[in-house]
Design a protein around this nucleic acid. Structure first.
Lengths: 188, 188
DNA sequence: GCATGCAGTCAACAACTGTTGGCCTACGCT
DNA sequence: AGCGTAGGCCAACAGTTGTTGACTGCATGC
């Protein structure tokens, strides 16, 4: 191999891309290694060679960064809208979070990963934004935000409730933003 | 058999009870017919005899009535609390809805059943309650309510986010009720 | 030019799945 | 008492799954 780039890196990436697609579309158990390998146009045994087993493949495919912006210093009345818009951007730009949502309902490791992502990434952001607000702790506020955000993803992208799917995202943002804002920074 | 009661009715009920438990705990694909039969202390082939196949068994086990109360005539300021409390009662008293939630993320038939339940049972109730309120249509309001309610069930009973699990239900009701109230009856 | 090692393929394994059909048993009617 | 039949069990099927190990080609080092 050359110094920096292994010849197999392209294959590894193809596997990961196919895995995210399949996990997002089918959930953990129905996304078979054979199907993922077929999508990546390689042999199933390569998946095993590079990722060991299915659980580790999922762990690799489900590495996700919410990329939450810093909310300190922003005008309070705009925070809800910014957060909801941001989540829509992440969902539309990367199906990994949908994969985690689908897999997390049946696979314990995926659920744990989901908890970890929201605790470690959403938690601190909420803690800073909610400083001084009365009522729930920062963790509790993060939990409330997660419930509304994930419920939105669930009904729109997974269960596909007709009215939620049909609505334009800007319209959804306008109606849901005040909820998030309340959970985030208002006295409760 | 006697006129009204077949001897097999007890078995049928045991199968259904075991099926609900397993579907709620494991989701659709990981809840195997063999495991359900073992829980009901009978042979797997009996499940097939009484319910035909796995999909029909699920359809029978996932028959669910939200039992939503009529909201007309209630004081507007109490509606949110009543609705959220009601859903907590249904979740805690019957795991069928959790089974539907778990299965709905990976099984298309379960997702369809979920859409059907919310459209047919939540839809009309919202339509009556929201009469006269400006903004979203009744279906859209029902979608918003579903997103928050299901998000709450998801984070508390399925993904088990620590802060949401630890909170007492009365505390959750107090914080979430205004959101539901807004989605239900307020001008948006 | 030849050995080394890596990328990739092929075929098979053992376990598990939903599902089927045949068989036994015991209740309930006449 | 005798018999039909419904309730139940056993064993097996075909397909699919994750996973493994032996094999082939090919590029790169000496």
């Amino acid at each position: 191999m050359t110094e920096n780039v292994r010849r197999s890196d392209a294959t590894r990436a193809a596997i990961l891309r196919a895995a995210r697609e399949r996990f997002a579309a089918d959930g953990y158990e129905r996304a078979t290694i054979r199907a993922i390998a077929a999508d990546a146009a390689i042999d199933p045994s390569m998946v095993m060679r590079y990722y060991g087993n299915k659980e580790r493949l999922f762990a690799a495919a489900a590495d996700f960064d919410l990329r939450l912006p810093d909310l300190t210093g922003l005008p309070r009345h705009a925070i809800g809208e910014i957060v909801v818009k941001h989540f829509f951007d992440r969902w539309d730009g990367d199906e990994t979070l949908i994969a985690l949502l689908r897999a997390g309902t049946t696979n314990p490791a995926a659920a744990e990963r989901m908890r970890e992502i929201f605790a470690r990434q959403l938690g601190p952001v909420v803690a800073r934004a909610a400083r001084g607000a009365k009522g729930p702790t920062a963790e509790q506020r993060a939990g409330l935000v997660a419930s509304q955000i994930l419920g939105l993803a669930l009904t729109r992208y997974v269960l596909r409730f007709a009215p939620v799917v049909a609505l334009h995202r800007d319209q959804l943002v306008a109606w849901v933003a005040p909820t998030i804002q309340r959970y985030l920074v208002e006295d409760l």
